[in-house]
Structures are given as C-alpha cells and as structure tokens.
C-alpha cells in the first residue's frame, strides 16, 4: 500500500519546498519536454539524459529525498521493461544487428527500450520531486491559476480545481481505508498474496466492493456537508492563502527558461557535439 509511485509531501523547509507551486509545475512540464525531445544524435541524447539525471540527483539531495524512494517507484516497472524489450526485439527489424544463434537482435530495438526506460525514470523522478516538495493543495491552486484564462470561454475552472483538490485530498484516506479493509478481510481468512487465480479474484472483490460502497457514501456525505456550509460552485470565492512570486521564483524562472531555451535550440538546430570532436 505504501509503494505509491508519487512521493508523499514531506514538510522539510528546503529551497525546493519554498519555491512557488506555479513555478514548480511549469518547471516540471518543461523538464518533461526536455526529456522527450531528440537532439542531434543518439550520443547527444544520452549525454543530456545524463545531465538531467545529475540535476535530478542534485534536486533530490536538496529536497531530502532518498534515492531509495526513487528506486521503490521504479521497482514495479521492471516487468514492463522486460516485456517491452521482448516486443521491441520481435518487432523492430531495422538497423544493424547481431545474432544469437540464427536470431537477429537489432541495436535499434535495444536502444528503443533503453530510451523508454530512461525517460520513464526521469519522468518519475521529476514528478517525485514535485510531489515531495509541494503540498497537493498548492498544486491544485497552481493548476487553477494556469487554467484561469479559460474562464473567458466559460470553462468552469473553479469547479475542475475543486474536483481535483478533493480527489487529491481523498487519496490518502482511501489508501488508509483500503489498508483497513485488507486487514479486516485478512482476519476473515482472505489471503491476498497466495492462492489460485479464482481465490485471488475473490480476495480482490472482497476488498473492492466495500471500498466502493464507502467511497460513494463518503462523497454523498461530503457533498451534504459542503452544501450545509453554503458552498455554491458558481459563487465568487476568496482565498485564505494568496500565492506570491518571490525573488527566488523569478530568479529560478530565469534559469529555467535559459536552460529550456538552450535545450530547445540545440534540439531544433540538431547540433551534434560529437561530430565536431570526432
């Protein structure tokens, strides 16, 4: 239950924690773009992946995130990667190849898998850093801030933000409840780890039905509680906490944009350092 792929917010007072959520959200999106763009050559790609990885490690260091947390987030992906590798080896038939017996294995297939793997790790790492240093509520506010222009074309931004923040708010509650139901059913002899497929399906059903029932119950209760306190989704609302951009945010934004601009330029021009060296 605790192996959640995204990090739980930890209340350290680090530089990354203090940064404005709006900036961090933008930064994550831009970093992800960098993760997915192609540079001049394969060697360049992996050089920059290396650079990004170093940056990730530095950020993690600053935010007091342990490497083990990242490894734990990656762990469930091993199976997927092996599966992907097999598919790639069977499907990709271009480029140079080496042979195991009579069976050709193309380098492209290996690199395709490696690309996906590295990108996934980087993406996980960036989202881990974001969620470990930013309160979910602040993230929703940031999202609402970015979506605000859409109100002009009658998109109910506030309602969307409220729905997201409620959903985020209830993730830990639901996990806790799932844990409780698991224990309750385990006390009745359900074995969630071993058993034949049929037994496993039954075990999962004994968990899912109570979870659904209580989630629905909880949401109707919550809706009532909100209405009783006069919540009107279309009403004008003020905010208790107002976000301010501080000097550090502006400075960081400057560095981020410079970095992103540089990366984009390198990518678009397709410059390959290694071509100059060699």
């Amino acid at each position: 239950m605790k192996a959640l792929p995204i990090g739980r917010y930890t209340n350290y007072d680090t530089f990354l924690n203090r940064l404005d959520a709006r900036f961090k959200l933008l930064a994550m999106i831009l970093f992800m773009v960098v993760v997915f763009i192609h540079f001049g050559s394969r060697a360049m790609d992996f050089t920059f992946y290396g650079l990004l990885m170093v940056m990730v490690l530095v950020f993690m260091r600053i935010a007091h995130i342990r490497i083990r947390q990242l490894l734990r987030a990656i762990k469930p992906m091993w199976f997927m990667m092996i599966f992907l590798l097999i598919i790639n080896v069977l499907v990709v038939q271009t480029g140079e190849a080496f042979y195991i017996g009579d069976f050709p294995i193309h380098y492209d297939a290996l690199f395709n898998t490696l690309y996906t793997f590295v990108r996934l790790i980087l993406m996980l790492a960036f989202s881990l850093i974001l969620t470990a240093t930013t309160k979910p509520m602040d993230l929703t506010y940031a999202l609402e801030w970015y979506l605000h222009p859409l109100t002009f074309i009658k998109v109910p931004v506030h309602i969307i933000a409220m729905v997201i923040s409620l959903a985020l708010r209830f993730i830990p509650t639901l996990l806790e409840e799932a844990d409780r139901f698991m224990k309750a059913q385990a006390s009745r002899g359900v074995d969630f780890e071993n058993g034949k497929l049929r037994e496993k399906v039954r075990a999962i059903i004994s968990l899912i039905i109570p979870l659904f029932v209580s989630a629905i119950q909880r949401s109707t209760d919550l809706a009532d509680a909100m209405e009783v306190r006069g919540y009107d989704p279309n009403g004008k609302r003020t905010r208790y906490r107002i976000m301010h951009f501080a000097k550090r945010d502006v400075l960081s934004l400057f560095f981020l944009l410079a970095f992103f601009g540089g990366m984009l330029a390198l990518s678009i021009c397709g410059i390959d350092f290694y071509a100059f060296i060699l």
């Binding site: 409780r180 139901f181 224990k183 309750a184 059913q185 385990a186 006390s187 009745r188 002899g189 059903i205 004994s206 039905i209 109570p210 029932v213 209580s214």
Partner: peptide, 17 residues
Amino acid sequence: LRKYAGLVFQFAEYQLF
C-alpha cells in the same frame, strides 16, 4: 492463527460485501 484468534474491527459493518 487467524482462525484461532478472530479480530473484529471497529465499524465492522463496512467489511460486508
């Protein structure tokens, strides 16, 4: 062991399915 020692949780009614 779990047959020997049965545990009824708080608000046990939620475990019905």
